[in-house]
Amino acid sequence: MISINHLNFRYNFHRPPVFTDFSLEIGDGQIIGLLGKNGTGKSTLLYLICGLLYDKKHSVSIDGIPSHERRPETLQRLFIVPEEFELPPISIRQYAKTHSGFYPNFSEKVLEDTLREFELSPDIHLGSLSMGQKKKAYISFALAAQTDYLLLDEPTNGLDIPSKSQFRKVVASQMTEQRTIIISTHQVHDVEMLTDRVVLLAEDRLLLDASLNDIAERLRFEVRPVGADLSDALYIEPSIAGTLVVAPANGFSDTTTVNLELLFNALTQNPEVVKTLTQPS
């Protein structure tokens, strides 16, 4: 379990705080979508979880071990694929040979299967790959490491449309009950079908932490024709197909599919949406 208890963090005194009294608990067996506007601290949160950044009171821990200690037994269970990274000028096979020893659960089979899915050869030289291909190679290694916690920062940036579909497929196939995957992204449509929990950051606080099932039970996401009644709408957005609406579920027996982008816009622009989600059912 990842525990963040009353975290207060800022980079320096000249900049506003990134987190103020921020608390969050992340259990096992979830895929979490970490959303937020630019500068709200998504990457910072991932770095804090990994121990790459730390606050004075060491508020972040993994299974009781403070992250800032960066103990090998914690790092072996954690892998981060950052938004920007460097790969050495060697083949994927050599990279895996050099790094796999650090991860006790590393699986050569998972690496081969994932690379095959991404249409990459293990003997291909990393230096000759495009940015998108490097990202696929790195994600393949990350999945093959079979760590309990996998942190992905903007994983679909730089991926073409077929690759995004491949990404969803490989992540879904490698998901287990013991594994937790946190995906920080602006490309919500790329991960909508994967996530089962949403954590939304706003300024220096947690705006929303809810499962998609809970959200679907409390809110409806509909496309209403132009001219339809919008009196119950908490948030609306015009579109070519009609009016995109977020409204309270109000006892509807069926649920609608959560539209993460619409939810994000609704949450950031209308505080009532947050109240609807957080009030007792």
Partner: peptide, 16 residues
């Protein structure tokens, strides 16, 4: 000496 290198090296599972 760069953010990406620090990220890579610091997250390697080994003690300081």
């Amino acid at each position: 000496n760069s953010k990406t290198k620090r990220l890579d090296f610091l997250t390697l599972p080994a003690t300081h």
